[in-house]
Each structure stands twice: as C-alpha cells, then as structure tokens.
Amino acid sequence: MEPSKDRLDAFIDGQLSVTEMQEMESLLANRPDLAAYVERQSRLRARLAEAFAPVIDEAIPQHLRDAVASSPVSARFRAAAWLRAAACTPVLPRLAIPAATLACGLLLGMWFRAPSDFQTSSGGQVLAQGELAAALTERLASAGTPKTGARIGVSFRDRTGRDCRSFLVAGRGASTAGVACREGSDWVVAVLAAGPSQTPGAYQQAGTEMPPVVRGAVSSMIEGEPFDAAAERAARDRGWKSN
C-alpha cells in the first residue's frame, strides 16, 4: 500500500495510533525514498524545537507576571464563580441575613433586570427605586394581583425589627424576585434573584412563584408570622415604620 503524503506527515508528527506507527515503520524500512522524506522532515521538526527551546527556559518578564496577577477579571466570571460557591441554596444559617444568599441573589437578579428599579446607595446598599419603590410603599398584596408592575408577596417583620416585603417584577421574558426592607424612607433590597420565566396568561399567586432563594430568605429573616391583610394595611398606613 502506498501511504499518502498526509499519512507520512501524521507519522512524523506522531499523530497515528501505536499500531499504525509500527506499520509505517516497517513500511519505511523497505522504502528509502519515503524514509528520506521522513528523515528530512523529522530533522526540520527537531531544528524548530531546538531553536525555540531556550524561550521556554527564559525568565518571564515581570510585566507579564503582573498582567496575570492584576488584570481585571470579567465581572460576569466573578459573579458566576460566586454563584457556584454559594450554590444558590436556600439553606440558611440561623443568624440575620446570610451573606452568601444575599450575594448570590443580588448578582443573579441584576442581570435579569433593567437597572431602573434598583439603584446602589453611596453606602453600597441596593435600594428599590421608581415603580418598584412605589409599589412596595403603596401596594397591598391583599388587594389582589395587579395587571402590570411589581407584585407583592408576603410582608413581615424581620428579626432586626424592620418591615420587609417580598416582591416580583416582570421584565421581558424574565422576572426578578426579592425581599426589600424599610429603612427610614428607603427600601433596602436584602435579596434579589431571578424569578420564574414569564409565561403569559399563567398568573399565579405571587407567594407560590417566588424562587426558593427568596422563600428561604424570608423564612430565615422573619420574626413570627407574616402579616395578614389587616396587619399589612396597618403597616402601610403608618408608612412601614415599625416603631
């Protein structure tokens, strides 16, 4: 069998299977013409490798080490790494608001949502603003599901004494859910997560479609029972000031 040029090259480059390599070797033993080609090309490979070998042993210039150590890393990668580390599980420790859940929810939520409903305070807190803030302040879950805008889930007093509400805002094809707590005249977002994807016409009770991260956060934050309709109205009427 006359080997193709490609096959000879693959032999030189070590790309054949062990059996094929052995077959080629025995063939070459009887074909000095092909063996000469293989020898010449192998010599070329060796010369190339030798010429460039010293580069591998050179000291790496410091500015390249610095580039690896301190070039900015993709924010999306860092966020994803964080999410993986936190695994987004609603298994929460007993204390206050678990930082892992918070981080996990926040980062994820921000991607799905246009920033108009949220802003970052100078202190680094995420605050609800615009329509969402208005809905948190005014809207009553007991009044039923609104046709548009933010839907309110449960309202409750948290362990630090703040009034907090879970919410769901629908975006284009995706939604964002979270928990916001009243501090002064601000709604501080404690947890934010991707909500269920939008299936038009399939409205459910807001409380049941909250993602597990949000439900888990609520159950770890809550002091006592969620507000009933009367308590919700009373809390709103006093401006969510929990005395």
């Binding site: 090259d9 000095p32 013409d33 000469a36 010449r40 090309q41 010599r43 070329l44």
Partner: peptide, 25 residues
C-alpha cells in the same frame, strides 16, 4: 490544518535545511 502544514513543511525545509537531494523524489 494538515494541508497548511504540508505546504509549510516544504517551504520551511528548503529554507532551513537547503534543497532536498533528489534521491528518491
């Protein structure tokens, strides 16, 4: 890839090793 390599090999061998002796080819 292998056809690019094949073309490069010929050209490079001539530059680096000189003309092939026309023994078999």
């Amino acid at each position: 890839l292998t056809s690019r390599l094949a073309r490069a090999r010929e050209a490079l061998a001539v530059r680096v090793l000189g003309e092939a002796k026309s023994a078999g080819a």
